[in-house]
């Protein structure tokens, strides 16, 4: 494990320049978009004095050349300062930290659901290959893959909240509800059901397809015949010998999709008014609130780097042939 620790440390160190590269690229890309925060604020606040606008630009540091702004930004990041969101009258760090937990909860539950449902569906489809079950799973997977997640979300909302009244329409908790800790957890869980399914089912559909293909591929391999020749039952063959090997492509995909899931959560958070980081960054892009966009993306890239590392560690546990370098 000591070797693993060293490898993890090395990987994290290697990630530092990657993250800074991402920062620089995003910074430059953002600055290619027309308009800046001051334009938007001036429009919202009806500032009519061009001199005032220049003062504000100077105050926000937007009057300097791009490369100076970038250098300043990187310098601040090195000092763990993500800058100030003038729009929110709050440091970027505070703005993000306030909203991050909601997104992390939504994403982790969605991913867990996606892996569990998708994985299980894939395994069942592969065991019952070319039967009614298999076809049914394929059709459902195609529906959830093809239908836009916001539409799925809205339909769930109409069905489960408006028609059946089973679940709260949106938000993360009941406003003004005074609960015990257990009550609060239950309350958030009820609010979490629809958004996490709406976000997770798309990925579940992908995992189901990949899992099925992977299971079928592995089930044709020699060592599976060996397992059968030992006299193992089909369930044990499937869940021990096939599944463990078939998980590898799913885990790979999982690592790759962490980033896209962050993007997908923007849509779902918007539909379900989930107070996460997705809606925040969407708004920030529209208003050219670049320190905040940068902050969120920086968080996001660090999250992806860490998650990928975690995926590699899982991969290593799943497949002894792979070693972390």
């Amino acid at each position: 494990m000591n070797r693993t620790f060293l490898a993890v440390r090395r990987r994290l160190l290697q990630a530092v320049p990657v993250v800074f590269g991402i920062v620089a690229i995003i910074f430059l890309l953002l600055n290619l978009s027309p308009g800046d925060l001051v334009d938007v604020m001036a429009a919202e606040e009806q500032i009519s004095d061009p001199q005032v606008l220049e003062q504000i630009r100077a105050e926000y540091g937007l009057d300097k050349p791009i490369y100076v702004q970038l250098a300043n930004y990187v310098w601040n990041i090195v000092h763990l300062d993500l800058g100030y969101s003038f729009r929110h009258s709050q440091p970027v760090w505070d703005v993000i930290v306030e909203r991050l937990p909601a997104t992390l909860i939504l994403m982790s539950v969605s991913m867990a659901l996606a892996l569990f449902i998708g994985g299980l569906a894939g395994v069942v489809a592969s065991i019952k290959v070319n039967t009614l079950y298999d076809n049914l799973i394929s059709v459902v997977a195609i529906i959830f893959f093809a239908a836009p997640s916001f539409w799925i979300g809205l339909m769930m909302m109409v069905l489960f909240s408006v028609k059946l009244g089973l679940l709260p329409v949106s938000g993360m908790y009941t406003i003004g509800g005074d609960y015990s800790l257990a009550g609060e957890i239950w309350d958030v869980t009820r609010h979490l059901v629809m958004p996490s399914f709406a976000l997770g089912l798309f990925y579940a559909a992908i995992y189901a397809r990949v899992m099925r293909a992977s299971m079928l591929e592995v089930s044709g391999l020699d060592f599976i015949r060996t397992a059968r020749a030992k006299g193992l039952g089909e369930k044990r063959v499937a869940f021990k010998h096939i599944l463990r090997n078939a998980l590898l492509p799913v885990v790979t995909l999982f690592g790759l999709q962490l980033g896209t899931m962050l993007a997908g959560s923007v849509v779902i958070e918007s539909v379900f008014s989930w107070p996460g980081i997705g809606t925040l960054v969407f708004e920030a892009v529209l208003t050219r609130n670049f320190p905040l966009v940068m902050g969120v993306l920086l968080f996001g890239s660090i999250l992806v780097v860490i998650a990928n590392l975690a995926v590699d560690l899982v991969y290593m546990r799943l497949d002894p042939r792979i070693e972390l370098r």
Binding site: M157, V162, V169, S170
Partner: peptide, 22 residues
């Protein structure tokens, strides 16, 4: 006693919240 302003960005979700009486 209390006034709450909720933020729901999506028009469909707003309609659902209205219909659901939330």
């Amino acid at each position: 006693d209390r006034l709450v302003i909720r933020y729901i960005r999506d028009p469909g979700a707003r309609a659902a919240a209205m219909e659901g009486g939330e």
